[in-house]
């Protein structure tokens, strides 16, 4: 853990503009490069990490995405989520804000300050309605901010901006 923390504080010194630019180009890449991705989709299944202290929320996502070519990992508290992220490098992270042991702010900040996880897109999903929280999370480097409850079609559309989600072949299911 200590090595991670040290690394994070060093990374913090990188000019913000540079980080922003890198993130923007990453987002553009992921959209432009969709055709390229489609070909490799057969081999690369997007891995999605869901960090939420309510196991039922994680489970609904697992069930929803079982119809899609995607792999879902779950974490039930902040620090666990961060560890999953640095060890497993998911392609997308869905994350709650208020969680025990490392809230969303902590996780997001740690992700963005870590070389290995800096570029992973993060969708924040929270029951809090505060506009300040929204700006705060976006400023910390979230890619998208959604309010719970969110309908799956809305969530799916947002997720598809970052990863390629295609329906599984029903026969193989």
């Amino acid at each position: 853990m200590s090595s991670v923390v040290t690394q994070a504080s060093q990374a913090r010194k990188r000019p913000l503009q540079q980080v922003m630019r890198a993130r923007m180009s990453k987002r553009i890449e992921s959209k432009v490069g969709k055709d390229l991705l489609a070909r490799s989709a057969m081999t690369h299944t997007p891995r999605i990490l869901c960090i939420d202290d309510d196991p039922e929320i994680c489970r609904t996502l697992e069930m929803r995405l079982s119809a899609y070519r995607a792999e879902v990992q779950v974490a039930y508290f902040g620090t666990q989520g961060f560890w999953e992220a640095i060890t497993d490098h998911p392609d997308l992270i869905l994350m709650d804000v208020s969680m025990p042991s490392g809230d969303g702010r902590f996780v997001l900040e740690s992700l963005r300050n870590n070389q290995a996880t800096r570029r992973i897109p993060v969708i924040v999903l929270t029951g809090m309605r505060s506009p300040e929280l929204r700006s705060e999370m976006m400023a910390l480097g979230a890619d998208c901010f959604l309010n719970k409850p969110v309908h799956f079609d809305v969530l799916l559309r947002e997720m598809q901006a970052f990863v390629d989600l295609s329906k599984r072949d029903p026969t193989s299911h």
């Binding site: 929320i57 929803r64 029951g127 309605r129 505060s130 719970k148 409850p149 969110v150 309908h151 799956f152």
Partner: peptide
């Protein structure tokens, strides 16, 4: 009030999501 409304939303989210999940025939 903020906290209570947040606490309301967590079960609501689960209820809505399971209902629409069942409705869509996923289970």
């Amino acid at each position: 009030v903020d906290n209570v409304s947040h606490e309301f939303r967590t079960p609501l989210t689960v209820i809505m999501e399971y209902a629409s999940l069942l409705e869509d025939g996923i289970a």
